[in-house]
Design a binder for these strands. Structure first.
Length: 500
DNA sequence: AAAAAAG
């Protein structure tokens, strides 16, 4: 086990790291920090939650020359929240040295950012679009850059930012600078980017075993689409998570879930890309401060967000992309704590679940749909917990006199039982209907024929056989016959085309 | 197909 004290850090950084309570380095930190200190370019293959930010943050901050007041370090991240988080982390580690990191991202008033830039940050943590905007306006100059970090490079590729990244890297005019690239996977496009813009990089990989999510219990529940919301409510009641993230597959879905959860009395807020940046920032803040217990999110919050105390992740919708599953559940079980991830799966999605299991190399445990009785039991347990907690806190001296008088007339067991009954929540049955069901369904013109559509969907995996059928259909058409059968075959053929 | 990011 490597410790931070083994790295020969500058006094300032050592002090900050100790103050943050860091002692032992994670594997990615242990491997990449010494290499980065030699000044070489570095590719680190590691997922989020492995301590990546500190792994690149330490060399980045050490490289800052306090006598130079230009921007010397730049971190590029795929989402705005990530840029903010990286900046916060760097400000913590760099505080003693006096290094100022400014987050730069879209959706925020640009004039305000330009004003902040006048405070001369040494490091910028940015999303690609807004960074390019500033470079064009010449409000950010790249001629003093000595360290460039590409965070979550593969995700930036997936999101179509690769051209932006190339444009930014091409703008960096300082003769010699160090480039650190971090990515969970290494697709060819990222390799070629590295070849073009990096100088003989060293390659560091955190083994798959260390990136898996060992302190997260993973379960799934098979449910019908229209049961999902009630099942989620039951789970929330039974498990009463400290902080939970609920992932939905669309922005509309997230809005509806928030509305439904609020109707049922939960403290929930949503986050997705169509909300104003001010709202997004606010939700993250409230959730971090535990003013809000449940954050409902699209995959915007799947990656990298490090919020301590997230005890539960609920996949209200199974993620389409198995990679995304790993990232989503990685929001819990952080910093050595236990986490629980529950995925709701409709019967037709069970195969998809298996493909996720292949990636994680871990079987999810199937749980039954929790019963109404389980909910009642959960509520009772919660009442007991809150009562005993108050007893432990011993903060009720003003009631003791009344209690004694009461006990003269009422049996003590009756009294405690009554108190528990009073404390036990009634399960909320407010009707909530989600309209955004939008399963993977054909967009054929005859959407009203629900029954046959379902059948076709189930057959879709055998689509290859249908192709043979279609040539038969073609022959029929040549004969000028348009039977009902023919039409449905046609639908299927169209579908197998679109599914490619 | 959806999500993310520049207005």
């Amino acid at each position: 086990m490597k410790k931070f004290s083994d790295f020969n850090l500058s006094k300032e950084l050592e002090k900050a790291i100790t103050a943050m309570g860091f002692e032992e380095a994670t594997p990615i930190q242990a491997e990449s920090i010494p290499i980065a200190f030699t000044g070489k370019d570095l590719i680190g293959q590691a997922q989020t939650g492995t301590g990546k930010t500190t792994a690149f943050g330490i060399p980045l901050l050490e490289n800052v020359d306090m006598s130079n007041n230009g921007i010397q370090g730049i971190v590029i991240a795929p989402t705005r929240e990530l840029a903010v988080q990286v900046a916060e982390e760097l400000n913590k580690i760099g505080s003693v040295k006096g290094v100022f990191t400014l987050p730069i991202y879209g959706g925020q008033e640009i004039s305000r950012q330009i004003r902040s830039l006048k405070k001369r940050p040494q490091i910028i943590a940015a999303t690609p679009g807004r960074l390019i905007d500033h470079i064009r306006r010449k409000t950010i100059k790249l001629d003093n850059i000595n360290t460039v970090v590409l965070d979550e490079a593969d995700e930036m590729l997936n999101m179509g930012f690769i051209e932006d990244i190339e444009a930014i890297l091409a703008e960096i005019t300082s003769d010699s600078h160090q480039t650190l690239l971090f990515s969970a996977t290494m697709p060819p496009r990222i390799r070629s980017l590295a070849e073009r813009f990096m100088d003989n990089p060293e390659y560091v990989k955190v083994k798959a075993k260390e990136m898996t999510v060992k302190n997260i219990d993973q379960t799934y529940i098979e449910v019908r689409e229209n049961q999902k919301f009630d099942v989620l409510n039951r789970l929330l009641d039974i498990q009463s998570p400290e902080l939970a993230i609920v992932f939905g597959r669309t922005k509309k879905r997230v809005d509806e879930l928030v509305e439904g959860l609020k109707k049922r009395g939960y403290s929930a807020e949503g986050i997705h890309g169509d909300l104003s940046q001010a709202k997004r920032d606010q939700v993250i803040r409230q959730f971090k401060e535990q003013m809000v217990d449940i954050m409902v999110a699209t995959d915007v919050a799947a990656r990298g967000l490090d919020i301590s105390g997230v005890s539960h992740v609920y996949n209200f919708d199974i993620p389409q992309d198995p990679e995304s599953y790993v990232h989503r559940i990685g929001r819990t079980g952080r910093a050595g704590k236990k986490g629980l991830a529950v995925t709701l799966v409709t019967p037709r999605e069970v195969n998809h679940l298996k493909s996720i299991e292949q990636l994680t190399k871990k079987k999810m445990v199937k749980e039954p749909i929790p019963s109404y009785e389980d909910v009642i039991a959960g509520h009772k347990q919660e009442a007991i917990n809150s009562l005993t907690k108050i007893v432990e806190e011993n903060s009720y001296s003003e009631y003791k006199g009344i209690a004694e008088t009461l006990l003269n007339d009422v049996d003590s067991i009756d009294l405690v039982a009554a108190a528990l009954k009073l404390l036990t929540k009634e399960p909320d049955q407010t009707p909530v209907k989600l309209t955004d069901i939008a399963p993977l369904r054909s967009k054929g013109p005859r959407n009203d024929r629900g029954g046959s559509r379902g059948r076709n969907d189930r057959r879709r995996p055998g689509g290859r056989n249908d192709r043979g059928g279609r040539s038969g259909g073609d022959r029929d058409r040549n004969r000028g016959e348009r039977s009902r059968n023919d039409r449905s075959r046609n639908d299927r053929a169209r579908k197998s085309k679109t599914s490619k």
